[in-house]
Design a binder for these strands. Structure first.
Lengths: 254, 254
DNA sequence: GTGTGTGTAG
DNA sequence: CTACACACAC
């Protein structure tokens, strides 16, 4: 089974990219973030036409997440119940016996900012939410844009990024607290010592210069970990015309 | 000699269109309107590279005019001297013994509006300016976007446009007052009874539906009129990708 | 509808 | 650098 995540940074702009990527990579499941389109603007038929079911949690301009799946989506839920907020960052669904949670985590702007304080509260809520999901569903996958680079190996210039947003010790501890619930960072698990970036800033030719961060992740619950075979970042999609600033990440399970 | 006019509606966006049109049509002179770029942003080398001299009167965001010519441009002047205004709507130059005045005339928004009153004042100033130019230069060509459809034949639906801006009796009288200085509307002179549109609103598929207006004109002084051979509107350029809403108009002189 | 500027967000 | 909203012009 192939399961992937991609922050498309506007599905309006990136619909052709998404369709092309699905056709070329044939994942069973694709989690999308930053749709940036309203609930009634989701191009469902474009995906059903090529054999994917879809569930989405849309919002105009900002955020917005979706799950595409070859198999039907069941028990679809949106948002974190405890967290009363208008931002559409979470959608969850069960596909066969696997619980999929697609997340677009808060960016946080800068360490110490108001948005950073919100990021902390948001990750605390995500942690509680995942504790509950894991209790209900032994086979759980949490994937999406975490806006956290968990280790220095995930950063092209760790010194420059030290204590900066996406890389700060606080954020990394929030990420570790998720793992402590019984989740495993699949790419890090397979390749703990190699650099794999998933996001390159649009500015200053960061992609051409291969200067990126790994902030998109696929986290597996313990019962799924033995099935893990491969995790790959498809950076070719970052090189397409008018690309997203993120590349898709795909895990293969036996 | 071939002399043309084109309102490109942003030379930033339409530079490729302009270069392509020059290559394909090889005019001796091309007058451009609505450059929408600042004086220091004009892409001069792009034109010199393909054999055209250029003079321009640039303005950020709005207006802006230029003259391109295979022969050198002399006695270049900008604006209407009498009219103290910041809008860059006029550039004039002498090419051999012909005086070329490129004009982007005021639109006027709606009959009776403040901008319409400005349009009246502006055309009065243009009239005085042209009287002076014609007195100095027997061979004179005034061309550009006049924002006036001189006759009902120049309008796809004269009833609908009756008394509307671009077609009102007042505006048509301002146009006629220009002709009374000794200028001839070259296209109307050759084809007084046929419809030739030069502008189609971007909205409502007006170009596909062939619903346009003739508001871009090439006016010749009396001494040039005997040399007039042909005037053509190149509406194919309006059908290109990401087109200007205006088509180029080209006159051929013996 | 298309363009431009400004502001916000990433 | 890219995307979006809004405002304005045509």
């Amino acid at each position: 089974m192939k399961i992937a995540t991609w922050n498309v940074n506007s599905l309006n702009v990136r619909l052709p990219h998404t369709l092309r990527w699905l056709q070329e990579n044939q994942p069973d499941i694709l989690a999308l973030q930053e749709l940036k389109l309203d609930q009634d603007k989701f191009p469902e038929t474009e995906f059903t036409r090529i054999g994917y079911h879809a569930a989405w949690n849309g919002q105009k301009t900002y955020n917005g997440v979706a799950i595409l799946s070859r198999q039907p989506l069941e028990q679809v839920t949106i948002d974190i119940p405890e967290l009363n907020e208008p931002q559409k960052r979470i959608i969850a669904a069960s596909i066969n016996d696997i619980r999929i949670i697609c997340a677009y985590c808060v960016n946080g702007e800068a360490v110490g900012s108001e948005k950073f304080a919100y990021k902390e509260r948001w990750f605390a809520a995500l942690n509680a939410y995942m504790r509950s999901e894991l209790a209900q569903h032994p086979k759980t996958i949490l994937l999406g844009d975490f806006n956290i680079a968990p280790h220095d190996i995930d950063v092209y210039d760790p010194k420059k990024w030290q204590d900066k947003v996406l890389c700060s010790p606080q954020e990394r501890s929030w990420f570790q607290q998720l793992l402590q619930l019984g989740l495993t960072d699949s790419l890090h698990h397979l390749y703990p010592d190699s650099a794999h970036y998933t996001w390159w800033d649009y500015r200053m030719n960061m992609f051409k210069r291969k200067l990126g961060l790994r902030i998109d992740h696929i986290l597996l619950s313990q019962s799924l970990l033995p099935a893990l075979r491969e995790v790959q970042v498809d950076s070719t999609a970052r090189g397409w015309e008018r690309p997203s600033d993120h590349a898709p990440v795909m895990a293969t399970l036996a």
